[in-house]
Simulated scan of single mutants.
Amino acid sequence: MKDDSLEQLQRILETERTALLNGHLDQLHDLLHEKERLLGSLGSENISHDNKLLNTLQQKMLRNQTLLENSLLGIRAVADRVSSVRKVRESLETYDNNGHRLELTLGQATKLEKRA
């Protein structure tokens, strides 16, 4: 891989990191295609074995992978919370006189009321 391609890959990894940290997940799609193109050129170009640079690139990729995994965990947590709120709006769980759990369906709520 030429030095220019390595520099481009490093810039893309830094841009990807910034996008992940700032929550701009919509930018990841385009960055992925550019990373794939650059990484695909590894097999077609003569690679100088600069282990330090390759290790740096690997560390940046692993760092970004960790950030991406944590972003996905956050998205899943939000989805779970929205699901919980929806469930609370649609039903009520309580207990009867004998201590048995009872679920009352409230019907479809059309809007969420906010109170100050």
Score class of each variant (00 low, 15 high):
6 L>Q: 10
15 T>C: 05
76 R>P: 00
88 V>M: 15
72 L>N: 08
55 N>F: 07
41 S>R: 10
91 S>N: 01
46 N>F: 10
33 H>W: 13
106 L>P: 00
40 G>I: 03
73 L>C: 04
49 H>P: 11
65 Q>D: 14
6 L>A: 09
29 H>N: 14
60 K>M: 10
10 Q>N: 11
66 T>D: 09
38 L>G: 01
27 Q>V: 09
32 L>D: 11
97 N>Q: 15
85 V>Q: 03
20 L>Y: 08
52 K>Q: 15
37 R>Y: 06
111 K>D: 11
35 K>Q: 06
103 E>N: 11
17 R>I: 04
108 Q>R: 12
89 R>M: 13
96 D>R: 03
109 A>T: 08
94 T>P: 04
70 N>H: 13
96 D>H: 06
63 R>K: 14
78 V>L: 12
17 R>E: 15
18 T>K: 13
16 E>C: 10
47 I>M: 11
31 L>N: 08
8 Q>C: 03
62 L>G: 00
98 N>L: 15
70 N>Y: 07
30 D>F: 02
66 T>R: 09
52 K>I: 03
59 Q>G: 08
11 R>F: 09
46 N>V: 10
112 L>W: 01
20 L>C: 06
107 G>C: 01
64 N>K: 05
114 K>D: 07
97 N>C: 11
80 D>H: 09
52 K>E: 14
54 L>A: 14
116 A>V: 08
49 H>E: 13
98 N>F: 13
93 E>M: 15
28 L>K: 04
61 M>V: 13
94 T>D: 04
21 L>D: 06
31 L>M: 13
35 K>C: 02
69 E>F: 00
112 L>Y: 02
13 L>P: 06
85 V>T: 07
2 K>Q: 08
8 Q>G: 02
